[in-house]
């Protein structure tokens, strides 16, 4: 690792204008501190009009984006960083775009033979043009209840609703469309909720221990995610070695199928029969004090700061090639 160590400034990017700005700011602060603890030079910045000038004025910078949602995760920022020819931690613009859009990522992962929920992605215009009543009825018939309704491009469970009957579906759709123009309606999968982080440092993806999520309220919503004490986390998950291996394999396959870069986190439900079902993948996973990825890193016996620094070094080394 030493010969490829990056010695320049690291720009930790957080904030932005997405609905997850607050989460992003917390992720950014945590990663920035972890990198400073490793003796790295860190500049923290919001995603704003001064960013291009800031990066342009630095010698050999590496950008570490901790933006969740919006242009930080949909490939837009990555496109700009490519254009500026600057090293950054994360995925290519195309991979970020693929993984962020649940309507695209799900089918791609399913094509690789991974179990995914039956789902349909619908722009709100579709309901207006075809008539909501007929479509809502068709969704109910095709997928059955309960259903999960979520925005196609959002995170942190924002805009997500579990729907138990056709009568609840319209309101849930409107709730999801408050976050974007496309909503995904999928069959609700019950089982053990786990998340598996993937890191790629030496060319080969490695799965971190699965984190099992047991929200006190029963629902892993925004409050359960970001209020310490509201959710019980078990790392590694209390599943058999066989299931744990299947989850790890699923996360790595999803990472590879979507062409993701040096890190990702797959969200998985393990059915009562032991089959893991892929829900979604995050190319810029949360790094807050209550986030899953850092817990998995620490459970693996790796210092979080050491891993962040290694991700920076990997990005720097890749940029040199």
């Amino acid at each position: 690792m030493t010969e490829t160590q990056h010695h320049g400034p690291i720009v930790v990017l957080s904030g932005g204008l997405s609905h997850e700005r607050d989460v992003s700011l917390r992720s950014g602060r945590r990663v920035a501190q972890a990198l400073r603890d490793q003796g790295r030079e860190v500049i923290e910045s919001d995603l704003n009009a001064g960013l291009v000038e800031l990066i342009g004025g630095l010698t050999d910078p590496v950008v570490f984006p901790l933006l969740h949602g919006g242009v930080g995760e949909d490939g837009g920022l990555q496109q700009v960083l490519k254009l500026l020819d600057v090293a950054y931690v994360g995925s290519t613009p195309a991979a970020a775009r693929r993984s962020f859009n649940k309507a695209i990522a799900g089918p791609l992962v399913a094509q690789a033979g991974i179990a995914t929920p039956k789902a349909v992605a619908l722009p709100h215009d579709m309901f207006r043009e075809l008539g909501a009543a007929a479509l809502v009825a068709a969704i109910g018939e095709r997928l059955g209840f309960p259903l999960m309704v979520k925005p196609a491009r959002s995170g942190s469970a924002l805009g997500c609703t579990v729907v138990h009957s056709a009568a609840e579906l319209p309101a849930a759709m409107v709730g999801a469309y408050s976050y974007g123009d496309v909503a995904v309606v999928e069959e609700f999968i019950s089982g053990t909720e786990v998340a598996v982080g993937v890191v790629v440092l030496d060319g080969e993806p490695a799965a971190l221990p699965a984190v099992e999520i047991r929200p006190q309220s029963g629902v892993y919503d925004y409050t359960a995610r970001y209020t310490a004490g509201e959710t019980r986390f078990i790392v590694p998950a209390e599943v058999s070695d066989e299931i744990a291996a299947a989850c790890a394999s699923l996360a790595i396959t999803a990472h590879q199928v979507l062409g993701l870069g040096t890190l990702s986190r797959a969200d998985i439900i393990v059915r009562p029969d032991g089959e893991p079902v892929f829900l979604e993948v995050n190319s810029s996973p949360g790094m807050t004090e209550t986030s899953l990825f850092p817990q998995a890193v620490e459970a693996a016996g790796t210092d979080f700061g050491v891993l962040c620094a290694a991700l920076v070094d990997a990005a720097w080394a890749a940029h040199q090639r």
């Binding site: 221990p209 959710t231 986390f233 459970a299 016996g301 790796t302 891993l307």
Partner: peptide
Amino acid sequence: MSLPEPSRRDTRLDH
């Protein structure tokens, strides 16, 4: 970087 075998941790992140 190799990842060693983990030990199980059960936490609500608030002692």
